[in-house]
């Protein structure tokens, strides 16, 4: 089943001004449920832009975007917010965590915006256990190492049990060993049925995915590596 479908998608920043940037120029992309995709490309090629659009964080300029068969264009802000909350988990390069808060509070952020009454403690434990951060749960994020932070970010993206995980260079600021550990986590999540889109410029890591794309100057190509 097709979870993401982009047709002829364009994204211009500062459209019409003299600072206009044509970040995406006609993207056609289909991602099926359960896929583990990697997207590689040089800096400035439009990887993040694409991921923000797929993650309903930014709006497209033209083209169509179907999320689970629904057209994103007609959706209201609150519907998009609900999608981000329920269906999408986002992992960023710089982790996007609240530094002063504890690991637990960071993981629970998405639950602040969901209708769900309360998340079961067992579920939090399970997720943290699996990511190896259970004993860190009451520690402030600012005291953690890079690898630990990225695990916290992943735990947060998982808490509302989304269908799809979007990771924008999640290993960008990690050493090789930690990078592989994080990649293993994504592989495991994929085995459990989650759709994963991994943006990276590390070819070694990209190779582990089962679908490969490259972006060049705002155009995406399917690649075999």
């Amino acid at each position: 089943m097709c979870i993401i479908e982009l047709k002829n998608l364009y994204k211009y920043y500062n459209k019409g001004k003299n600072t206009e940037v044509r970040a995406l120029k006609g993207i056609n992309l289909k991602i099926n449920k359960g896929d583990f995709c990697s997207i590689v490309g040089v800096s400035g090629s439009g990887k993040s832009t694409l991921l923000y659009i797929i993650g309903c964080i930014d709006k497209l300029t033209s083209g169509t975007f179907y999320f689970e068969g629904r057209d994103i264009n007609g959706m209201k802000d609150c519907e998009l917010a609900k999608l981000r909350n329920q269906k999408i988990g986002f992992v960023l390069q710089e982790f996007g965590l609240i530094e002063e808060e504890t690991v637990l509070n960071n993981i629970l952020v998405p639950t602040l915006f969901s209708k769900q009454k309360k998340i079961e403690e067992k579920r939090i434990e399970e997720i943290c256990e699996e990511l190896g951060i259970l004993e860190l749960i009451n520690i402030q994020v600012k005291k953690l190492s890079g690898g630990q932070r990225q695990r916290v970010a992943i735990a947060r993206s998982l808490i509302n049990n989304p269908d799809i995980i979007l990771a924008d260079e999640p290993t960008g600021s990690l050493d090789t060993e930690n990078s592989y550990k994080i990649l293993e986590i994504f592989e495991k999540l994929n085995e459990q049925g989650k759709t994963i889109i991994l943006v990276t410029h590390n070819m070694e890591l990209a190779r582990k995915a089962n679908k490969h794309f490259t972006i060049k100057d705002g155009i995406i190509y399917e690649a075999d590596i």
């Binding site: 964080i57 952020v109 998405p110 602040l112």
Partner: peptide, 8 residues
């Protein structure tokens, strides 16, 4: 951060 996690 809140926006990404589901706040408008």
């Amino acid at each position: 951060i809140y926006y990404i996690c589901g706040l408008t």
